[in-house]
Design a protein around this nucleic acid. Structure first.
Length: 681
DNA sequence: GACGGACTT
């Protein structure tokens, strides 16, 4: 069949010049005489292939193709720095395909090239683009793999996947033996998964001399990467951005929101046409800013053109998000002042979404960032100053289609002296219980000596180990137990994983499965005009199915207590406690709740749906906002605590407090009951 | 009496 196609093609009238060039660009790897045949699927190239090829050749990274080949050939690890527009994400993996031999030792099995992305959408859209460039079908020779969707096949030679997905694959394929080359893209973002992959790959490379690693990053922190990867060579690729003029304020601004709005109106009045992108920190602030912009511009009357202020944040429904791509409004009257689009966005526009046509960026210098307090095991969001790298990225958003301007609402001195150069990697700002469980499953026994690029605080690791030990996922020697094994396979936090795994014992796994799915996904009670969010329910159902499949693999039975039984809800609450016994709060005589053992004063979040204040509650989340809130709470009973988690509520290891005294009473009553029982016998 | 920056398995 293949021969027939080849014959047809040799008669095919293709522009000679293109095919001649093609031989050269395909290198020696395309089979002899097959320059018009796509080596990946044996089909003749389409006209579109040649059209795209012309454009690809103009990408900055193409000028360094030979240099890249040499570096890849000579080294096991390679670091590549390329700014926005260099074409690295789409081109480098294709260069790698041209440079390496994917045949396995027995010739039957072919190796793959894997390229990680921090985000699902990116993995999906980039792989589609590359499939088009290579003139192959997506899901065949070029594919992608993200949660809920595996678009790859036995023929796949290049696979884009989320970094979290590669980490999952490593659980079953510790030496990543399906891969010949792994490319970690967007490494500067330092996601939790990428950071774990760094350390893991360093180990794997030692045991797989034939495996190669390419680390791609957008910043010069690459020199740090170089040090980490034993002085791997660094290749720099220029980006393709228009110049962006940076403007600072003379004095520090007291109120960044007010300053941002003032800057918007000034640009609108005095600057040439071009859209504006304003970075703010959250939904509420953004909606308020949009309202104020419309109001202020309306007050200016006909002197200025019309504006369309559009909000942008991740929880905005997709249809509303699409509005950022609509054009600016036309002038009110023919020949009148031009209209302007003003996108008011969170950090989502810094990395995940690119909007063409932005000429002005307003950067107040703040973002909400996660911080973790290992002492009380609480993660919270805090509005905090951004890093220099982040400011640089924001500014770049103004230069995608023409020269632009970036207004930094802070002084140049502040930029130089106060901003840290890089954002703290996520691994230093997170609860690591889940990460530690993953590492254990990956066979990393000695966490203290695991080669993290930035080692987390020892206390954070200790707290994570402690939590996993209390849950029974790790034994006292720190080894993964059978329970821990199952928990590591579930895409859930350890507490929730434990709750789900033990739920069959409480005869309520159907219900706990639903609860887990609903809690681990976006919240559908954030309803839109009192209707339950359909998309959120669909996605919770998706999660539920995935969890049910994994439970099936471990022979965990799906069961329910009779709905009319008085034990129906009791069993569910007990199963929840079996996972969440470390997140208990006790109602003190003062009327306040105090978290057990950590002794933090907390308040029931107003969104709770209890009709009374129970003496003991377990909570799903501790949120630090205007006060310490515990959110999504469930009423539990004191004697369940000592039944279900006696090892945690062990009085020998318990600070003196009201909760302790209550537990003492329960233990004493237990003793009395036992003795009475003895006497009656 | 009031909350989700961005992501991922």
């Amino acid at each position: 069949m293949g021969t027939e196609r080849k014959r047809k093609v040799s008669l095919f009238d293709v522009v000679d010049e293109t095919s001649a060039k093609l031989v050269k660009f395909n290198g020696g790897s395309a089979g002899a005489g097959s320059n018009l045949i796509n080596r990946w699927n044996g089909r003749p190239y389409s006209q579109r292939y040649y059209e795209i090829l012309e454009k690809r050749r103009t990408l900055p990274v193409w000028h360094q193709k030979e240099e890249f080949f040499q570096a890849l050939k000579a080294n096991q690890t390679l670091i590549l720095v390329g700014e926005t527009g260099s074409g690295k994400t789409t081109q480098i993996p294709q260069f790698v395909l041209d440079a390496v031999d994917l045949d396995g030792p027995d010739k039957r099995r072919k190796y793959m090239i894997g390229c990680t992305q921090p985000r699902r959408v990116a993995a999906m859209s980039v792989s589609r683009r590359v499939a088009e460039e290579m003139d192959v079908t997506i899901g065949e020779e070029v594919g992608y793999s993200i949660r809920f969707e595996d678009q790859s096949s036995a023929r796949t030679v290049l696979k884009y996947l989320t970094d979290g997905m590669l980490l999952r694959e490593a659980m079953t394929d510790p030496l990543l033996e399906r891969y010949k080359v792994i490319i970690l893209d967007e490494a500067h973002e330092r996601t939790l998964a990428t950071d774990v992959l760094f350390g893991l790959l360093k180990e794997v490379l030692k045991n797989r001399p034939d495996l190669k690693l390419v680390v791609m990053s957008a910043t010069l922190e690459a020199e740090k990467f170089q040090g980490y990867f034993h002085g791997a060579p660094l290749m720099k690729v220029p980006g393709r951005l228009f110049p962006v003029e940076i403007l600072y304020t003379e004095e520090p601004e007291r109120d960044y929101l007010e300053a941002a709005l003032r800057t918007v109106t000034q640009i609108h009045m005095h600057e040439p046409p071009g859209d504006i992108l304003v970075f703010l920190t959250g939904e509420e602030e953004i909606e308020e800013a949009c309202r104020k912009i419309h109001k202020e511009v309306a007050n200016m009357g006909d002197r200025v053109g019309p504006v369309k202020a559009v909000p942008l944040y991740s929880t905005l429904p997709p249809a509303m998000q699409q509005k950022i791509f609509e054009p600016a409004p036309p002038p009110l009257t023919e020949g009148g002042p031009a209209g302007r689009k003003i996108v008011v966005s969170t950090n989502i526009a810094e990395t995940s979404l690119t909007i063409d046509g932005i000429v002005y960026v307003i950067d107040p210098g703040f973002a909400k960032q996660k911080v973790y307090n290992p002492r009380i095991r609480v993660e919270s969001l805090l509005v905090s100053p951004i890093s220099k790298a982040s400011a640089h990225q924001r500014a770049g958003r103004a230069g995608r289609t023409q020269p632009g301007k970036c207004y930094r609402l802070y002084t140049e001195k502040s930029f130089n002296n106060d901003l840290q150069s890089q954002t703290y990697p996520e691994i230093l700002r997170s609860n690591l219980a889940n990460t530690v469980l993953t590492l254990k499953k990956l066979g990393i026994d000695d966490l203290v000596h695991f080669d993290f690029m930035d080692p987390p605080a020892p206390e954070t690791l200790m707290r994570a180990l402690e939590v996993l030990n209390y849950l029974g996922a790790l034994d006292d020697e720190g080894n993964l137990t059978k329970l821990g094994e199952i928990m590591s396979e579930l895409p859930l936090d350890p507490q929730m994983g434990k709750m789900l795994v033990v739920s069959p014992k409480f005869n309520c796994s159907n219900e706990i499965l639903s609860i887990s799915a609903m809690l681990s996904d976006e919240d559908p009670s954030w309803c839109y005009e009192n209707f339950v969010n359909h998309r959120a329910l669909k996605s919770a159902d998706n999660v539920r199915q995935q969890l049910a499949r994994i439970m099936g693999r471990f022979n965990l039975k799906l069961s329910s207590t009779d709905f009319n039984s008085r034990d129906y809800y009791i069993n569910i609450r007990k199963a929840m406690l079996a996972g969440y016994f470390m997140q208990v709060a006790h109602l003190e005589r003062t009327g306040h709740y105090l978290t057990v053992k950590d002794n933090q004063v907390v308040h029931l979040h107003p969104s709770n749906c209890l009709d009374h204040k129970p003496e003991w509650v377990i909570y799903n989340e501790f949120v630090l906002t205007s006060r310490n809130f515990i959110r999504t709470v469930t009423d539990v009973r004191g004697d369940w605590l000592v039944d279900i988690a006696p090892h945690y509520f062990d009085l020998a290891n318990f600070p003196p407090c009201e909760a302790r005294r209550k537990l003492e009473k329960i233990y004493k009553k237990r003793e009395r009951d036992r003795e009475e029982e003895k006497d009656t016998k």
